[in-house]
Nucleic acid binder design. Structure first.
Length: 554
RNA sequence: UGGGGUGUCGCCAAGCGGUAAGGCAACGGACUCUGACUCCGUCAUUCCGAGGUUCGAAUCCUCGCACCCCAGCCA
């Protein structure tokens, strides 16, 4: 059960006092983009509340603006919510399914003298609205007769006017200090088909008019949204007060999630997709749920993250490092270990028989014997990580260097006896001798050497592509018009010459592994093929050794 | 300058008049055939500031200050 927060307290109290016998929440995305980690916070909150308090949570598409919404988004949203681990059962709804009722209620308000058709242009409406410090002016069309309003509104509905020609407005108070109450627009004319409602409508309701009434229709008890809608609450309540709605939902607001080193607004994410800065909404660098999934994040780790960050009302920025820590924590428990060499450097064991091949057992998890083990072939020629060898080792380097010894993980201790270089001075091969009795379980197995490195048999290894992903942005809080200049040019590095242990050849899509000493990797959902696997780096392992050049992160 | 909010450790976050939880980060140390994991220890005499009430205040009152949101026919 999630930790306590003010919303859980409110729900608990409402149940205890008998205000509600059961609670109903809802997750109301607009299908104008893919869901991101910020939505996960809302999903976990709304579905979590329903689950923990024996209520239910609806999935409702807030589809009131057909020019921005698409069927593709509707489908991706459903998939993302399911993937995250939540279900809505029979409770899948669309605000557009309430358009008839909403229309009837609009006429109801007109008849009550509380709504009118306005002919002012968008620009005029803006001018008449006044400013933050000055009251607005009433529209010259504000006092049309009920009959005229009714007729005009029906003609709007029937498509007799072009886009923008007229709007239906609630008649509230043009002098209200709350801008939302200065005769808000309820309906606008849009001659466009709707992804769910089809071509039935020429007029579409605004969010403020549709949302609360949809909540009321569905019997929502706690309508939870983000802080920027706080000013809308008086309007939300005005509609409920003035319409014959069947239920009285209550709106509560919480602080939206902000994450460092990425961008979160749908507008920016859409721009990244459209401008080709990323490969799509599910690019592993995107903070979208589909992106995180492809990156290798587990639903469990994201849920855990949402529990850890809590729910409050103060603006906050969560460190990306916390999200990363959450996947590590989950994957450390469940990801089998494997050896993979990302930047191969050949290593030849001079005193090892040329044709000999041995197989060593390697535990799939050092702390979990129940996860079993696998055989790893070993021979005279291996590949080791280029970074694990230094001709002139820096202070503190525990890996291989001329004359030094190192343990080959799950195998022998080797001693470097020499190197070979090409004409440019680049090391092309490392020569070693091995200690025959030092293999795991051998007579000298207990001998201590300061370093342990991973390796893959040159004869048995399998070629693989590995994509190293890093943070999307290079600054914690990218903002302003030049936010794109904060994009990390090294957020994706593709390595095509990697060598992985044979057992990885047939790994299936979305299988996750820890490549020992490197990080957690996930078989790419779209591009991996049997025999030619493609791995995405989810997150690196923690590295308490700076290696000389420490990257500052938070 | 109108209205609505928020201010507790680097980042989150408990606390609701009885004398500052927890997580992440950081820093020491132990362990280690992953420089991983795990483990042990350190980490707010102080709660945006200043007054006041009280035996006692992060919690109540007053006055300030800072930051966020609102002038879409977006949500």
């Amino acid at each position: 059960m999630a930790p306590a927060n003010f919303l859980r307290a409110i729900v608990a109290e409402d149940l205890k006092s008998g205000k509600h016998k059961t609670i109903v929440t809802r997750f109301p995305p607009e299908p104008n983009g893919y869901l991101h980690i910020g939505h996960a916070k809302s999903i976990c909150l709304n579905f979590g509340l329903a689950r923990d308090f024996g209520g239910r949570c609806h999935l409702r598409f807030d589809d009131t603006n057909p020019v921005k919404e698409e069927v593709e988004y509707i489908e991706s949203i459903k998939e993302s919510v399911h993937w995250l681990g939540f279900g809505w059962g029979e409770h899948l709804y669309y605000a557009s399914d309430y358009f008839d009722q909403l229309y009837e209620w609009a006429e109801y308000l007109i008849r009550a003298g509380k709504a009118y058709v306005d002919d002012l242009t968008a620009a005029d409406i803006r001018d008449y609205r006044g400013t933050l410090t000055e009251p607005g002016k009433e529209s010259p069309y504000r006092d049309r007769s009920i009959e005229e309003n009714l007729e005009l509104f029906r003609r709007m509905r029937d498509g007799e006017f072009p886009d923008g020609a007229k709007v239906l407005r609630a008649k509230i108070d043009m002098a209200s200090p709350n801008m939302n109450l200065r005769d808000p627009v309820m309906y606008r004319i849009i001659h466009a088909p709707h992804p769910h409602a089809g071509d039935k409508w020429r007029i579409y309701p605004m969010y403020d008019y549709a949302h609360g009434q949809s909540d009321a229709i569905e019997g929502i008890t706690h309508s939870i949204c983000t802080l920027e809608f706080e000013d809308h609450r008086p309007l939300y309540e005005w509609f409920l007060d003035n319409l014959p709605v069947p239920n009285r939902p209550r709106q509560y607001e919480f602080a939206r999630l902000n994450l460092t080193y990425t961008v979160m607004s749908k507008r920016k994410l859409l721009q990244l997709v459209q401008d080709g800065d990323v490969a799509g909404w599910d690019d592993p660098r995107m903070p979208t749920l589909m992106g995180l999934r492809r990156r290798g994040y587990t639903p469990e780790s994201i849920r855990g993250f949402c529990e850890r960050i809590g729910v409050g009302r103060s603006d906050s920025w969560i460190e990306m490092g916390l999200l990363e820590e959450c996947v590590r924590e989950d994957l450390n428990e469940r990801a089998p270990r494997a050896m993979a060499v990302l930047r191969p450097l050949k290593l030849v064991i001079e005193n090892y028989p040329t044709d000999k091949v041995e197989e060593f057992d390697a535990a799939n998890h050092p702390q979990k014997p129940e996860m079993g083990s696998r055989k790893i072939p070993f021979c005279r020629e291996l590949f080791i990580e280029r970074d694990d060898f230094m001709e002139e080792p820096v202070k503190g380097f525990k890996r291989l260097a001329p004359g030094g010894e190192v343990r080959l993980r799950n195998a022998y201790i080797v001693k470097c006896t020499g190197i070979e270089k090409d004409s440019t001075g680049r090391v092309t091969e490392v020569r070693c001798t091995y200690d025959h009795d030092s293999h795991t379980g051998g007579a000298a197995a207990g001998r201590k050497v300061k370093g342990v490195i991973h390796w893959v048999s040159a004869r048995h290894g399998v070629g693989a592509e590995v994509r190293l992903y890093d943070r999307l942005c290079v600054v914690p809080n990218p903002s302003g018009d030049d936010w794109k200049s904060c994009l990390n040019p090294a957020s994706a590095e593709v390595l095509k010459e990697c060598m992985v242990e044979p057992s990885l050849a047939t790994a299936s899509a979305e299988e996750r592994f820890q490549f020992e000493r490197q990080g957690y990797f996930c078989v790419d959902l779209a591009d991996s093929r049997p025999g030619v696997p493609v791995f995405n780096r989810t997150v690196t392992l923690r590295d308490s050794w700076g290696g000389g050049q420490e990257t500052q992160r938070s």
